[in-house]
């Protein structure tokens, strides 16, 4: 969503981007003999380099000038390449991924609440807060927003548009790495994880509003809650269909998403 706003990049490999950093960490531990915290730092650095800088320079920059559709197709191809690459060069089966926090439970009013879940929620909230602050409360963030809204005018005003777009790609890479480190201890690290994650993230962004960060968060929470309620109280077999029903409903009745703004573009 950040990428779309700043550079009109729709990344269909976003799910694979979330899958990959976990394998950077595992590879750093396995082949580099690093401890888990050090390996996470290496994983983050490699994610910034590969999924941020190289993705922009090698995939987006050469193709975006030919339009959005070629880029969409390229990112679909990239998703397949990343998935098959992990399968071929690391492992086809799921790999255990260590948790950076306690896996114990807290007993509150007779209910077991997982420390893991609390940590994930806390990290997600803090990250979103920081991101919002960065985008709205700092000069660089405001320049990035200006770039997103009108790159031509931003250029006239002296904003280094190219650098702002690069920052967006790096922030995206850091966020996918963080998501990977949070989700892999629960889902296990597997080459195919991106399929589910990418689809759900994409639907969440559209449901919440593709041009609003808070919209995507609301979309994600809504999707997660509905999905689990449906699976627990209606039917586990049809749970995969629910996000799609929600997507259709939003596209029909509120195409800009629940919290999104109506945008007009010159075509």
């Amino acid at each position: 969503m950040l990428l779309w706003q700043t550079s009109q990049t729709i990344n269909f490999a976003q799910g694979e981007f979330v899958m990959l950093p976990a394998f950077f960490v595992l590879a750093a531990m396995k082949f580099g003999g690093l401890s888990f915290p050090l390996a996470m730092l290496v994983g983050l650095a490699v994610a910034l380099l590969v999924l941020g800088l190289l993705f922009k320079r090698l995939v987006v920059d050469p193709i975006i000038r030919h339009g959005v559709l070629p880029l969409v197709i390229s990112t679909i191809a990239l998703a397949i390449l990343l998935k098959e690459g992990v399968k071929e060069f690391y492992a086809a089966d799921a790999q255990p991924f260590p948790a950076a926090w306690a896996t114990t439970n807290l007993e509150i009013a007779g209910a077991a609440i997982s420390v893991q879940s609390l940590v994930i929620m806390a990290v997600a909230l803090v990250t979103v807060g920081l991101l919002q602050y960065f985008l709205a409360g700092t000069a660089t963030g405001r320049r990035m927003q200006a770039t997103a809204q009108n790159p031509a005018l931003a250029r006239v005003l002296g904003i280094p548009v190219k650098r702002m777009i690069l920052y967006t790609f790096l922030i995206n890479a850091a966020l996918v790495a963080l998501a990977s480190f949070l989700v892999s201890p629960i889902y296990l690290a597997k080459f195919s994880n991106g399929e589910t994650l990418g689809l759900v993230a994409f639907i969440a962004a559209i449901v919440g509003g593709f041009n609003q960060v808070k919209g995507a968060i609301v979309g994600g929470v809504l999707l997660g809650v509905i999905d689990n309620f449906v699976a627990a109280y209606l039917s586990a077999q049809y749970r995969a269909a629910i996000p799609l029903f929600l997507l259709i409903a939003v596209i029909l009745f509120r195409p800009q998403g629940l919290l999104g703004r109506v945008e007009e573009r010159t075509v």
Binding site: D93, A94, P96, I186, Y187, L188, K190, N193, T196, D227, N228, F229, V230, A231, A232, A236, R239
Partner: peptide, 30 residues
């Protein structure tokens, strides 16, 4: 399947004396 949260909620709600799990390897671990 990667997310078993709802399934575990159902199993806990049933309050059975034992839970029999018959899934393939990766799903068993998750």
């Amino acid at each position: 399947q990667v997310d078993f949260a709802a399934d575990v909620v159902k199993l806990k709600g049933a309050n059975a004396d034992a839970i029999f799990v018959y899934t393939n390897e990766e799903e068993s671990a998750r």
